[in-house]
Design a protein around this nucleic acid. Structure first.
Length: 561
RNA sequence: UGGGGAAUCGUUCAAUGGUAGGACAGCGGACUCUGACUCCGUCAAUCAAGGUUCGAAUCCUUGUUCCCCAGCCA
């Protein structure tokens, strides 16, 4: 379904591309890439980048490559590669046959490094990490030249070859760019290009003991793939001069250009890889796919749709301002999408027994219910109705406040899709005072329409037939953190929301929900959108995840009191 | 008192010298067999001070605030 789409304002990246196209740069070609490091699961922040890069390629009839930026074997694995592939594909994007790995370029990158040495632009340095730090200087003081800075090209060539052969210990030597130890930009103070690291790589195994650094590998990988616009986040802005320095020396033509945009921050959650890992490892969540996680896999399990996520990524825009996007916008996008396509159903989360004294025992009516009030094309289903029902505990109050329009002593209420019922009496447990059941009567003339006498019934509540209901578990999720910007706190764990998960075991769902397919989504009327959990659902024993609640203006009214 | 970036409604994105606009959030109302959806209305911003100009969010000057950089991570 392609929307004709109101003309969206250009962002600064599209402005740049339009200008490039106008001036004939890159012969009108637009080539981007999404370059994750396969050392973790991708999250909603990556989704912004995915949508941007693939979106640009789509809009300008260009290409977007998926490239694993796997130059540091520590922590990288095929498991993460597979998860990234699955997640990007699920988000709705296609890279054709252009799945690449920086590790496939290791031989070429090595050759580039040799070329740089030959030009006199790189040297092997024997300083260890501590010494190098000392030589680097500070923000206000220039660095000092390494004593190894002026080795001969031949010696550098020899040493670099021996680094590759494994003749030196880890960390004992590096290959460095020969730039400017006095640069005000610390990135340019002879940055390390290669390090020695005896760490098996998940793809190249033990073939290499030296690995290229990001700054060296990334720009050259871009060039090797013919990337025109290399889009990354703001923290790489300082690295751009190095990107350009390397490319200028090693790439003849069609040099890629790096453009930086502000990464996404989302309120009430964290998006830094380090913090996400901590949540998983310390078991504050059940895993990367915990439905509370902002990971793509977590959101998928929660029941978010790719369409909603894409819409969100478009709605937030692209700029260079630091931002903290209100999670309410994400939830809005999810509701907007699901309102359109989720079939309606009824489920009682906290059951309260209702007995219709004037309804024949043993009688069962099959009530035709619309699957979507605005979309007749989604059809109807039959929902059994009988003498004993469950309603939501919240939908009855012995002593209701003002504006409460549900069931209460002396009142009438409409059962959704069924009769108007009237309160008669209530039965309490004598010891605890807890309400056990409520007896009501029904108005048989109101099944398919308003009461003949024209009286108004203020409230509509949902219900299920007690005999026919299927017992379900429902998991209610709330924001993971109780402050808007937990990422700004060093000890972010202290702000975890202790009530981010509520598991409700005895929920009563309408019969039609008994064998709903894992992954399918419904609107439980008056409650919210729910998704059949793919992991824990067993045949006949559904587990539902609450994706997002419906907007609840009653909650706002009652909270104010 | 190093360098690189960014400052526009509560949040976010736009306005590219010519009416400060959209979305989300908020508030009020209409409709309603979902207190949903939908619809209508409404609140609300140019970091500050100077300057240029008929006219400045936009150009200039000075200042302020915030973010990033001293990994052999990306």
């Amino acid at each position: 379904m392609e929307q004709p789409a109101a003309p969206l304002p250009n962002d600064f990246i599209r402005d740049i591309i339009d200008e490039d196209l106008k001036t004939g740069k890159n012969l009108g070609r637009v080539a981007t890439r999404f370059p994750p490091e396969p050392n973790g699961y991708i999250h909603i922040g990556h989704a912004k980048s995915v949508c941007l890069n693939f979106g640009l390629a789509g809009q300008y009839r260009g290409t977007c490559n998926l490239r694993m930026d796997d130059t540091d074997p520590l922590g990288e694995s095929m498991e993460f590669v597979e998860s990234i592939i699955r997640d990007v594909r699920w988000l709705g994007f296609d890279w054709g046959d252009r799945l690449f790995y920086a590790s496939d370029y290791f031989e070429k990158l090595y050759a580039f490094a040799v070329e740089l040495i030959k030009k006199g632009d790189a040297y092997v340095c024997d300083l260890n990490a501590d010494e190098m730090r000392e030589h680097r200087g500070t923000f206000t003081e220039p660095g000092k030249a390494s004593p190894y800075r002026n080795r001969s090209i031949d010696e550098n060539l020899d040493l670099f070859a021996r680094m590759r052969r494994g003749e030196f210990a880890d960390g004992s030597r590096t290959l460095r760019a020969k730039i400017d130890m006095g640069s005000a930009n610390i990135v340019m103070r002879d940055p390390v290009l290669y390090r020695i690291k005896r760490e098996p790589h998940y793809r190249t195994g033990n073939a290499w003991v030296i690995y290229p650094m990001y700054d060296f590998a990334h720009c050259l990988s871009d060039a090797l793939e013919g990337i025109t616009h290399s889009i990354c986040t703001l923290e790489f802005e300082n690295n751009r001069p190095l990107y350009d320095w390397i490319v200028a020396r090693l790439i003849e033509k069609d040099r890629p250009r790096q453009i930086e945009f502000a990464r996404l921050n989302l309120s009430y959650t964290v998006l830094s890889k380090r913090r996400l890992i901590e949540l998983v490892q310390k078991k504050y969540v059940s895993g990367w796919d915990d439905p509370r996680m902002p990971t793509v896999t977590g959101m998928r399990r929660r029941g978010y749709t790719p369409e909603a996520i894409r819409q969100f990524c478009q709605a937030i825009g692209v700029a260079k301002n630091d931002n903290l996007i209100d999670v309410a916008l994400l939830e809005h996008c999810v509701r907007e999408d699901l309102n359109e396509k989720a079939p309606r159903a009824m489920c009682v989360l906290r059951p309260l027994k209702i007995i219709l004294d004037d309804y024949p025992e043993g009688k069962v009516e099959q009530i035709q219910c619309a699957n979507h009030p605005q979309r007749p094309d989604m059809g109807t289903r039959r929902v059994p109705f009988s003498r004993e029902l469950y309603i939501e505990q919240d939908d009855f109050l012995e002593d209701p406040p003002k504006k409460y329009n549900r069931l209460a002593p002396g009142r009438e209420v409409r059962l959704r899709n069924a009769y108007i019922i009237k309160f008669e009496r209530l039965v309490k447990d004598e010891q605890s005072g807890r309400i056990i059941e409520i007896h009501c009567s029904h108005d048989p003339a109101t099944k398919d329409g308003p009461p003949a006498d024209g009286r108004k019934v203020q409230g509509v509540i949902h219900w299920v037939s007690a005999r026919h209901a299927v017992t379900a578990e429902v998991r209610i999720y709330d924001r993971l953190f109780r402050i808007a910007d937990p990422g700004s706190e060093e000890d972010f764990l202290k702000d975890l929301n202790p009530d981010s998960l509520e598991e409700l075991a005895g929920c009563q769902a309408e019969e039609s929900l008994r064998d709903s397919a894992p992954g399918s989504r419904y609107q439980f009327e008056r409650l919210g959108y729910f998704c059949v959990d793919e992991k824990d659902t067993k045949p006949g024993k559904p587990v539902f995840n609450r994706i997002v609640p419906l907007r609840d203006s009653w909650a706002k009214i009652s909270d104010k009191k």
